[in-house]
């Protein structure tokens, strides 16, 4: 990897690298916290207040809150990964290729 060392140092000194790392780091931290938080909330609800998820949605239905919450959480997981890919494969990859072109 020695042939890259000099370029690694130049990228490290580039303010746009800082920008990329900061933006992407913050974005993935927010999404991770969101996913982890929702899942933890779900587990804690199950452990401490299972009757909440067992309450029917309305008077004339047997479907409980647990069903839309559970299925919703699956959909949230898929949507959040999609949101991340969209921004990472677009904006972040553009920034990266600009940086790489610079140090060629």
């Amino acid at each position: 990897m020695e042939q890259y060392n000099e370029r690694y140092r130049r990228i490290l000194a580039d303010p746009r690298f800082d920008e990329l790392v900061r933006k992407r780091g913050r974005f993935s931290a927010i999404l991770s916290a969101l996913m982890l938080g929702l899942y933890l909330l779900f587990i804690l609800l199950i452990a401490f207040a299972p009757h909440l998820l067992g309450t029917p949605l309305g008077r004339d239905t047997v479907i409980t809150w647990g069903v839309p919450v559970g299925v919703g959480l699956i959909l949230v997981a898929i949507i959040l990964t999609g949101v991340y890919v969209r921004r990472a494969n677009g904006e972040f990859d553009r920034l990266t290729s600009e940086l790489l072109a610079e140090v060629k």
Binding site: Y4, R7, Y8, I11, L12, F17, L20, V21, T96, L100
Partner: peptide, 11 residues
């Protein structure tokens, strides 16, 4: 540092 730049940029 070198690892960090490579992990972020793929260089």
């Amino acid at each position: 540092d070198d690892q960090f730049v490579r992990s972020q940029t793929g260089l």
